[in-house]
């Protein structure tokens, strides 16, 4: 690899992998980005009742999860929900 390569953007192999990862999430979910957006908004609504969350930083994805004992994998809904503040439940 020459010095010039270091300044180049990502290699095309990495680009391919990144694109595929994103693409397969929606392929596997078999639901449109619209539906994912609706699920996301509903999650925000429900969790917000109990604590203050960072709606901008919320991320949901359909991924694969390994089953125990090497029995293949199943789709899983993965949600990363950053909490800003734990509201005290009794205050409501």
């Amino acid at each position: 690899m020459s010095l010039l390569d270091l300044f180049k953007k990502k290699s095309s192999g990495t680009i391919a992998k990144d694109r595929l990862k994103l693409l397969l999430v929606s392929d596997r979910a078999n639901c449109s980005p619209d539906v994912m957006e609706m699920i996301k908004n509903d999650i925000i609504q429900v969790i917000s009742k109990y604590m203050e969350i960072d709606a901008e930083g919320l991320d949901i994805q359909i991924t694969q999860m390994d089953l125990e004992g090497n029995e293949g994998n199943v789709p899983a809904l993965y949600a990363n929900i950053p909490i800003k503040d734990m509201k005290h439940p009794s205050v409501s």
Partner: peptide, 15 residues
């Protein structure tokens, strides 16, 4: 050269 996905990339994706 990094211009083709390697075996690990493919098995990672397809699991």
């Amino acid at each position: 050269r990094g211009d083709m996905m390697n075996i690990n990339d493919v098995t990672d994706i397809l699991a």
